[in-house]
């Protein structure tokens, strides 16, 4: 525009810039029996699956007096936050879990019904943001935390929230997802995850991925994407990021919102 000598007020520079493009710079993941990056790579390419296993994350990096407060799901989340590969440096954390440590809430409700007295320790940890808060207490950090929960489309909500934080000035945001099989009481009601897991992605400005909206009618891939979409599970996001042969991940039930891969080589595995 400038080359034709147009007045500067005609340029788009006055518009607030907001891009739905971004990158994932670092990542970490934890699940039982998944020892290293190689194990996750095999899983991402569907050569292995996650096993239901009793192993609990050790979280050795956290002082024991704080670590003791976390249950297995929280420990998985803490393990990925402490992972050297993530190199956490006081970024905002967007903590996403479909149910959180629901075994804790269930135990509190049982205690309330049976004894009328609940454990203060369990109660204090039963809010959804307790796990990332425990991490920030240990780190003596005042970074902001957002804790999100929804049964469906949580990956979409998490990415949207992290993007708004980037747009608001954060140079990088930690997007954390975790989930675990629910207590058996809930079995009739819900699609369960295979095992306890957590993964974190460091979202930064960049041009490796795009959050894209396509009206459903115009989307040729719509039918196909809808049938392939598990709406609730969080794991397809990690699989998509690690499997560079895939170009798009549907994020909503109608697949009108997609996560698209722009660059062939993205996350540094």
């Amino acid at each position: 525009m400038g080359s034709r000598g147009a007045p500067s007020y005609l340029s788009m520079a006055w518009m607030p810039e907001f891009s739905l493009e971004f990158s994932f710079r670092r990542w970490s993941a934890w699940a039982p029996a998944m020892a290293d990056v190689g194990a996750w790579s095999l899983w991402a390419h569907k050569e292995t699956s996650l096993a239901d296993h009793e192993e609990v994350a050790s979280v050795k990096a956290m002082p024991p007096l704080l670590r003791r407060r976390a249950h297995p799901l929280g420990r998985a989340a803490l393990e990925v936050l402490y992972a050297p590969a993530l190199d956490y440096v006081n970024q905002p954390i967007v903590f996403c879990g479909r149910h959180g440590e629901i075994d804790r809430s269930l135990a509190i409700q049982h205690a309330l019904a049976e004894e009328g007295r609940v454990s203060p320790q369990e109660f204090s940890m039963s809010v959804h943001n307790a796990i990332p808060a425990l991490f920030l207490i240990a780190k003596q950090s005042q970074a902001p935390i957002t804790a999100l929960s929804s049964e469906n489309q949580l990956v979409f909500s998490g990415i949207t929230e992290a993007l708004t934080q980037l747009a608001d000035g954060a140079s990088s945001v930690i997007l954390l997802f975790c989930d675990a099989p629910l207590p058996t009481l809930f079995n009739p009601f819900i699609e369960n995850e295979p095992t306890c897991f957590a993964f974190a992605l460091e979202m930064t400005e960049g041009k490796d991925y795009r959050l894209a909206y396509t009206p459903p009618i115009a989307s040729l891939a719509h039918e196909k994407a809808t049938s392939a979409l598990p709406p609730a599970s969080l794991l397809p996001l990690l699989r998509f990021v690690l499997d560079e042969t895939r170009s798009a991940l549907p994020l909503t039930e109608t697949a009108d919102w997609q996560l698209q891969r722009l660059a062939p080589e993205t996350c540094r595995v």
Binding site: L65, R117, S119, P120, Q121, S124
Partner: peptide, 17 residues
């Protein structure tokens, strides 16, 4: 031991039980 106020509440409940 380095316990905190939530531990005090928790211990109170345990001592009661």
């Amino acid at each position: 031991l380095g316990l905190d106020s939530i531990d005090a509440l928790e211990l109170g409940v345990a001592l009661h039980k």
